[in-house]
């Protein structure tokens, strides 16, 4: 029993991270109709920014994270302003390729600015844990889990209850019509890129203490987040979050009970098989295509 609880505790932390990254991807998908493959590498870059401020300037962690968030907003704006804004006429495949190009750019920029040595980023709360039902959970994990939940709740509130959210959803459902109805879609898209950037860097800062800050930092997160979107369906905002939680918990259970080396791979294979039966994900709706 305590093992299961322990596994769930451990999963919840990674779930939060995946969910934040997945939300970043889905916001971009809904506003710009782009599968955002570069979400992870942009997050990696900005996590490097945080680490750089933290180690090179000995700034407190919270201040470094704030600097990372500002840098994330800035890179998001920049990407939208320099590239995405000018791709209205580019085919969906072309847009996907552009985000792949962005991966290359960020993968290349990071070592140029921050060197090739892998860096370390500490936890927010270095030590301490509570024991619930025989299972321990660190204060830092509790912080990450609740931070993730709070951000998601705020985001859902903004999306569904505010004028800004209405603008975002209008842009998501039909960019052209939204523009004609007076929604400033350009600003909405730019906002979305900034928000995605912030979600990315937060997930990066959360995952970093568990490994080390390198150019590959976000690879597993990016793949999990993409799969969370696939699993939850690209049509809703809450689907990917749900997908992220299922994925995170399934991964830990598979690696613990089935195989520590191959658990993750098995999960992906199961996921591909699942998609055969529910191609549009758990809460996905089927498009009816017009001929």
């Amino acid at each position: 029993m305590s093992t299961i609880l322990q596994l769930i505790f451990r999963s919840l932390e990674t779930c939060s991270i995946y969910a934040l990254a997945a939300l970043g991807i889905i916001i971009i998908y809904r506003t710009s109709l782009i599968t955002h493959f570069a979400q992870g590498s942009m997050a990696m870059f900005n996590t490097f920014v945080v680490t750089w401020f933290f180690t090179s300037f000995s700034m407190p962690l919270w201040a470094s994270v704030l600097a990372g968030i500002i840098s994330a907003i800035f890179t998001g704006f920049l990407v939208d302003f320099l590239v995405i804004r000018h791709t209205k006429k580019v085919s969906p495949v072309g847009k996907q390729i552009i985000t792949l190009g962005l991966i290359i750019v960020f993968l290349g920029l990071a070592p140029m600015f921050f060197g090739v040595a892998t860096l370390q980023l500490p936890r927010f709360i270095p030590s301490g844990e509570v024991v619930v039902g025989g299972a321990a959970i660190s204060y830092n994990a509790i912080l990450n889990i609740s931070l993730g939940l709070v951000i998601m709740l705020v985001l859902f509130y903004v999306l569904h209850k505010t004028k800004l959210g209405l603008a975002i959803r209008a842009t998501a459902s039909n960019e052209q019509t939204a523009r004609l109805m007076g929604v400033p879609t350009q600003s909405v898209t730019m906002m979305a890129w900034a928000v995605a950037g912030v979600l990315g860097v937060l997930s990066g800062v959360m995952i970093a203490p568990a490994t080390s800050v390198s150019v590959w930092l976000m690879n597993p997160v990016q793949i999990s987040a993409l799969f969370a979107c696939v699993l939850g369906g690209f049509q809703t905002f809450y689907g990917p979050v749900l997908g992220a939680y299922i994925l995170g918990i399934a991964r830990n259970f598979l690696t613990y009970y089935v195989s520590s080396v191959w658990g993750e791979q098995i999960m992906y294979i199961l996921l591909l098989i699942f998609l055969l039966f529910r191609p549009n994900g758990i809460v996905g709706k089927k498009y009816s295509k017009k001929v």
Partner: peptide, 22 residues
């Protein structure tokens, strides 16, 4: 000294080609 440059250039080239010279 900056082997990353040519890698970055590849990325930039991809984006430019898709946008302007498909």
């Amino acid at each position: 000294q900056n082997p990353q440059i040519s890698f970055i250039v590849n990325g930039v080239l991809i984006i430019l080609v898709v946008m302007f010279y498909p």
